[in-house]
Amino acid sequence: MVKKIKSFFEKFYLLVILVILYAPIVLLIIYSFSNSSNFNFDQGFTFEAYKAIFTSDKSPELWKAIGNTFLIATVSSVVATIMGAFASIGIFNLGRRTRRIVENVNQFPIINSEIVMAVSLMIFFVTFAFPEGYLRLIIAHIAFCTPYVVLSVLPKLESMDPNIYEAALDLGANPLKAMTKVMVPIIAPGIFSGFIMAFLMSMDDFIITQINKGAATGINTLSTYIYSDARVQGLEPFWYAIFSIIFIIILATVLGTNVYKVSKGKKKAKEAK
């Protein structure tokens, strides 16, 4: 009996926190169908807010910002993945002391506070007169994305059986072939998840982009455009629609991949038994 009450309280607590955590998200999604900025259904159930994504006088700018977000995320995550994957192979083969130093420096963009990283890059770009605009943004994004790629590839290299690579060499593959045909396929899952991570980090970034975009260029990503637009007048109805779409996409993707991973892990454990 006591146990039942305890487990009820535990579940109740979990539920309360969950409701609070998701209330803003759910409310936003519900009211995205109201075409109002202040949470009323005076206009009834409508898709106006979703239409406004394409028809509002702000939509050209909005779509440009979305385009920029994808452009910067794609370029910087591809560069970060290629550089990070090669770097991991290199770092893995470094001497012990150099390797530790490089790994520590690699860790820095991750542990550092974002605002400090942002202003340090800004000082750097100003001091060496880098041209304002995409170049600065893409370099900055590569700088904070690559460490995540390295962190996801290195463990794969560590867990790889070095004999496999040696065997390929003994069987007559040249080192390049042994690397592309043997090593790369083994570490591919790490490279892939590093790429996804880099892409998401770049898409998600606000602070570093905001500080390095330069006021004069007029370049906006989705997050900096949201900030510049919503800071002053609050959220217009079409933002509700955009946020709802983003919520749904992200929640579905993350939940989907993780449920898949967990259930796959369970299956494996069962098979092992």
Partner: peptide, 23 residues
């Protein structure tokens, strides 16, 4: 094979270490 790390090490020096030194 460690030469593969050189581009990234240079990158880190240029865009992570030097900016912090500049601060």
């Amino acid at each position: 094979k460690k030469v593969f790390s050189i581009p990234y090490i240079l990158f880190l020096l240029l865009f992570v270490v030097i900016p912090l030194v500049l601060i």
